[in-house]
Design a protein around this nucleic acid. Structure first.
Length: 371
DNA sequence: TAGACGTGGGT
DNA sequence: TACCCAAGTCT
């Protein structure tokens, strides 16, 4: 990018307006750090900031809340998480998506305990070296948990900055420039609250669509606002069509209602999660993916079809259902009906099971006959 | 560096 | 319905 035509606001000016706004309008969130907490150096604080930051990667606040509460309840500190069964962590993460986060979460907890004496390092580079912690998350933890003055740049901040400076270049090509601008705005006082203020501004005022510029504390020197085209930024590349893959899922049900499951591999899509048996997911939109792909002979009958959209492709699955009363084949297990809801099942697999056996993935009630 | 990697909610 | 997108990381 080129230098803005107008002089940038000095750091005191921009940060003062923003933090003053934050003091009045900040969001109340379960993991939010109150200034008093940080001042007291609460030992559990870095753990809570880290946990919430990992969960919030590419994930909405509303989706994260129940997961965050449950994790904090089951594993209140980094030692308990490091000592947890990996399978229990995967089960607790099921439904949140991007499952490599859960695997790295566990690995990171183990490393903090083994290599850092159970204490998160108050250092950007050391944080960055931990599994699952990248450029954004290392800076966010440093700023929010330790009040270290560092530029924290997430999608919200990119939007605020590209609008404020009217940056025309695609955002992917100007990451360094954006960080440099944030550095210049960074205040010496309350850098952690400044970081959270930037993100809150992006989330509540400087929104992707229909930004509330009339309420913005830094609109006075915003180039995009001055030009009346805030919504045009950040400039993004054209989208590409998602390919379609097809396959079949086989839901085997035992007489007592148990469901046959197996484990997915350790790498790739949905790695380390559980599933019902499925065919390979081909790129064809029609053809051989059908009942002939069944993993074993049984009275398979068509139960319906599901469509599930992943980040980079769309999946259409024909769902088959059968009664099957033998022992579980090698590598499979029978999950008792009342435990299915707690299995490490990704959403796409819960959809498949629900299509064959409505209600099977719901948590049973105490009055349920299945108990 | 570009592609892989999930999901649910809003419009 | 279809599309957009939400506090990114890893390879």
């Amino acid at each position: 990018m080129t230098a803005p035509a107008k002089p940038e606001p000095n750091r005191t000016d921009f940060a003062a307006r923003l933090v003053a706004w934050y003091d009045r309008h900040h969001r109340r969130l379960p993991w939010r750090v109150a200034p008093g907490e940080r001042a007291r150096g609460l030992r559990a604080l870095p753990y809570r900031v880290w946990l919430s930051e990992i969960m919030l990667q590419q994930t909405t606040v509303a989706a994260v809340k129940p997961y965050y509460e449950r994790f904090l309840r089951d594993w209140p500190d980094v030692e308990s998480l490091a000592a947890a069964e990996r399978e229990a962590v995967m089960k607790a993460w099921a439904g949140l998506g991007y499952y490599s986060r859960a695997r790295n979460l566990k690995k990171c907890a183990e490393e903090v305990v083994a290599r850092h004496d159970g204490v998160f390092p108050a250092d950007v580079a050391a944080l960055r070296a931990l599994p699952g912690i990248g450029a954004y998350t290392s800076a966010a933890i440093a700023a929010i948990a330790f009040d270290i003055p560092v530029a924290v740049v997430d999608g919200n901040v990119e939007r605020v900055v590209t609008r404020h400076a009217a940056i025309e270049a695609p955002v992917a090509t100007v990451k360094k420039d954006i960080a440099a601008i944030v550095e210049r705005w960074l205040p010496a006082e309350r850098p952690g609250d400044f970081a959270q203020a930037m993100m809150d501004l992006g989330a509540t005022i400087c929104t992707p669509r229909a930004p509330a510029c009339a309420l913005c504390p830094v609109s006075a020197d915003c180039a995009a606002f001055a030009a009346g085209e805030a919504e045009r930024y950040p400039v993004k590349p054209a989208k590409v069509a998602k390919p379609v893959r097809t396959g079949a899922a086989f839901v085997a049900e035992r007489a007592d209602g148990a469901v046959l499951l197996r484990k997915r591999g350790e790498t790739g899509l949905l790695a380390g999660m559980s599933e019902v048996p499925t065919s390979a997911w081909s790129a064809r939109t029609n053809g051989a993916d059908g009942i002939e792909a069944a993993p074993f002979a049984a009275g398979w009958r068509a139960a319906g079809e599901i469509r599930h959209v992943f980040t980079h492709f769309e999946l259409r699955l024909a769902v088959y259902h059968a009664r099957f009363d033998d022992d579980a084949p090698a590598g499979h297990w029978w999950s008792p009906r009342h435990l299915v809801h707690g299995e490490a099942l990704p959403t796409v697999m819960k959809k498949a099971i629900e299509t064959a056996i409505p209600g099977a993935t719901k948590k049973p009630t105490v009055t349920g006959a299945s108990l």
